[in-house]
Computed example of a mutant assay.
Amino acid sequence: MSDQQEVIVGLRKMLVVKERESADLQDRIQQLTAQLQSRAIAALEPPAPADPRLITVDDALVLQEVGIYEYHHPLENAENYKQALAQLRADVREAVKSSEAIVVAKKFSFNNSLVEGRRLTSDLAKLMLRAYNAEAENCVRTMRAGNLDTAKRRLDKAAKDIEKLGAAMQMRVSSSYHTMRTKELELTADYMMKVQEEREIAREERERLREERKVEQELAAERERLDKEQAHYRAVLQRLSDTGQDTSEIEEQLERIADAIAQNDFRAANIRAGYVYVISNIGAFGPGVVKIGLTRRLEPLDRVRELGGASVPFPFDVHAVYFSDDAVTLENELHREFGQQRLNHANPRREFFFATPEEVRQVLAKKVGNLLDYNDSPEATQYFQSKGYWPASR
């Protein structure tokens, strides 16, 4: 068999493999995942040196390797990424139409004929491009937020395999075309991350608006109650004055109500005023984790009780609830102070930190002075009552 025939056979085999991978992709991923899990369980000896030809496909391992995701083509929003992807894919199609995707030897002869050689290289170029594009499409379809490096390694390997098969005829995937398809992977990954971020921001904004509506309703209801109470005491004051009785106690009540109304109006007008709270949940997160948050509720513990709903196994314990005229700034300062101790470094809007209540108390005391009420130790009543019934291995 001649070199040219061997190349043709090799490319056809590669194309069949790639197309089969495209059809049976999910099964292959499940099999590889099962193999990785079984190997991890069975491994009793130190691992052998990693084979550079192997590509990790386990999402958890990949995400741990890459760290915090960084955008390769920073754009403002997901729609911009979508438009950039559409333009890039149009460029990819144009490169295929203009025969710029595969580098082809210009003077290759077959059976001593340049015409036959051009016909052969044209057919082989189509086979190469189909094989390469099949792998590129597989990489796009299996893209997950954060596993871009794995997809790029797979695509690089496909380009190198095709180059090896076409070495005898000086045929390979052009660097410009490979760059475009690599950029397509980057934009796809960026788009997926941006969509994920925007969904998270939208969810948090809806939560913020719900919280604001609750605060507005509470303040309006409190103002209505105070107005009724004030009207009642004014009527009593009028009757006592008309009969010449002592009105000092009623006047004190009216002063108290006036102060409460002024405070309520201040809370309604000043959106930065509120309560900064420090809470923990050792049954859910362990003893060294706290949440530092903010609420504008009239009764801040209502917010804490909501956080300790069905989403966590035990209610939160409250270590501090501090009212501030500028609670937004105070909360941000505390978050910056413990910024390096966040649980979630990928999403800074999550307010959990590796810190003890005592560590937070010391920082809070430096910023606001002495704290009259602060609990260093959590009660965690339900946690301690339940722990004795847990399996011994827990």
Rank of each mutant, 00 (worst) to 15 (best):
D91C: 12
R203L: 12
V304L: 06
S99T: 11
V92H: 03
E163F: 00
K366Q: 15
E229D: 12
S241L: 14
A40H: 11
K387R: 15
S386T: 13
E252Q: 13
D259V: 12
S248F: 12
V17M: 09
S248N: 06
C139P: 05
R210C: 02
L301I: 08
S174L: 07
R223W: 04
F285W: 11
H232Y: 14
L11M: 08
D91L: 12
L372R: 07
K183S: 05
E94L: 11
T295N: 07
Y191T: 00
G339Q: 13
H178K: 07
R296A: 06
V278D: 02
I282E: 05
W390N: 05
V363K: 06
F316I: 02
V9D: 09
R208F: 06
V289L: 08
R350C: 08
C139H: 03
M1P: 04
A40I: 11
R267M: 11
N80C: 14
I282G: 02
A189W: 00
G274L: 03
M128V: 14
S176Q: 07
L114V: 14
I250E: 11
F110N: 04
L25Q: 07
N370P: 04
K107L: 14
E137R: 03
A42I: 09
L124R: 01
G166A: 07
A220R: 15
M128S: 09
F352R: 04
A268H: 07
T247H: 03
D246S: 04
N347V: 12
V9P: 03
D149M: 11
R223K: 15
T295C: 11
A50I: 12
L185F: 04
K183H: 06
S311G: 09
I162W: 03
E359A: 14
A258Y: 05
E212V: 08
A23H: 03
E358Q: 14
L127E: 01
S241I: 12
E299K: 08
T295E: 06
S324N: 04
A258F: 09
R234H: 13
V363A: 15
R303W: 02
R172T: 09
V363S: 13
K164F: 11
K13L: 13
R272Q: 01
D265W: 01
A101E: 00
Y322H: 15
E207C: 06
R213P: 01
V140H: 03
A268Y: 09
R130V: 02
R267G: 00
R303F: 05
Y275R: 00
V360C: 04
Q4V: 12
A221V: 11
P46K: 15
R305V: 09
V115F: 05
N264Q: 06
V289P: 01
Y275I: 11
S311H: 10
V363D: 04
T329F: 11
A105T: 05
E251S: 09
S176H: 08
V17F: 10
S248T: 10
R53N: 15
G244Q: 08
G339R: 13
